[in-house]
Computed example of a mutant assay.
Amino acid sequence: MKIDLDYIIKTFEDLVKIPSPSGYTEEAMAYVKNEFENLGVKFFTTNKGAVYGVIDGEDNDQSILLTSHVDTLGAMVLDIKDNGRLKLASVGGFAWGSIEGENALVHTDSGKVYSGSLLPEKASVHIFAEASEERKEENMEIRLDNDVRSAKETRGLGIEVGDFVSFDPRFMLTENGYVKSRHIDDKICVAIQLGLCKALIEAKEKPKYQTYFYIANYEEIGHGLYHIPENCTEVIAVDIGTVGGTNTSSEKAVTIFAKDSSTPYDYGIKKTMVELCKTKDIPYRVDIARRYGSDASAALRQGKDVRTACIGPGVDSTHHYERTHKDGILASANLVMAYLLRK
Score class of each variant (00 low, 15 high):
Ser317His: 13
Val254Trp: 02
Gly245Ile: 07
Lys252Asp: 09
Gly268Ile: 09
Gln210Met: 13
Phe213Thr: 11
Lys278Trp: 00
Ser20Cys: 12
Val336Cys: 04
Ser115Ala: 08
Lys48Cys: 04
Thr255Lys: 02
Met172Arg: 13
Leu300Asp: 08
Glu133Asn: 10
Leu173Pro: 04
Pro283Asn: 11
Tyr267Asn: 08
Gln62Trp: 09
Val54Phe: 10
Val179Glu: 05
Lys10Val: 01
Lys343His: 13
Glu322Ile: 02
His320Ala: 15
Tyr321Lys: 07
Asn103Val: 05
Val161Arg: 11
Ala104Asn: 02
Ile256Phe: 00
Arg301Met: 11
Tyr178Asp: 07
Ile329Ser: 00
Tyr226Asp: 10
Ala151Trp: 00
Leu73Asp: 09
Tyr218Leu: 14
Tyr212Thr: 14
Glu230Ala: 06
Asn83Pro: 01
Asp56Val: 09
Ile80His: 02
Met1Gly: 10
Gln62Glu: 14
Glu234Lys: 15
Val51Asp: 02
Tyr178Val: 03
Ala296Ser: 15
Glu37Ala: 13
Glu251Tyr: 01
Ile64Trp: 11
Thr108Cys: 10
Ala50Thr: 12
Ile192His: 01
Gly303Cys: 06
Asn217Arg: 09
Ala309Trp: 04
Ala50Gly: 14
Glu275Gln: 12
Arg342Met: 14
Thr45Glu: 13
Thr318Gly: 00
Tyr114Trp: 11
Ala203Tyr: 07
Leu119Ala: 05
Lys252Arg: 15
Pro19Thr: 07
Ala298Cys: 11
Asn38Ala: 13
Pro207Cys: 12
Gly101Lys: 00
Asn83Lys: 01
Asp239Tyr: 01
Lys270Leu: 11
Phe164Ala: 07
Gly74Pro: 05
Leu194Gly: 04
Ala151His: 03
Val274Thr: 10
Tyr292Phe: 14
Ile9His: 03
His227Ile: 14
Ser262His: 09
Val235Met: 08
Cys197Ile: 03
Val148Arg: 06
Ile142Met: 03
Thr174Lys: 04
Arg149Cys: 00
Thr46Asp: 09
Ala333Pro: 04
Lys180Asp: 03
Gly97Val: 08
Ala199Ile: 08
Asp281Ile: 06
Leu225Ala: 12
Asp82Thr: 11
Ser317Tyr: 14
Asn83Gly: 01
Val254Arg: 02
Ala333Trp: 01
Glu134Ala: 12
Tyr7Phe: 15
Gly49Ser: 05
Val243Gly: 04
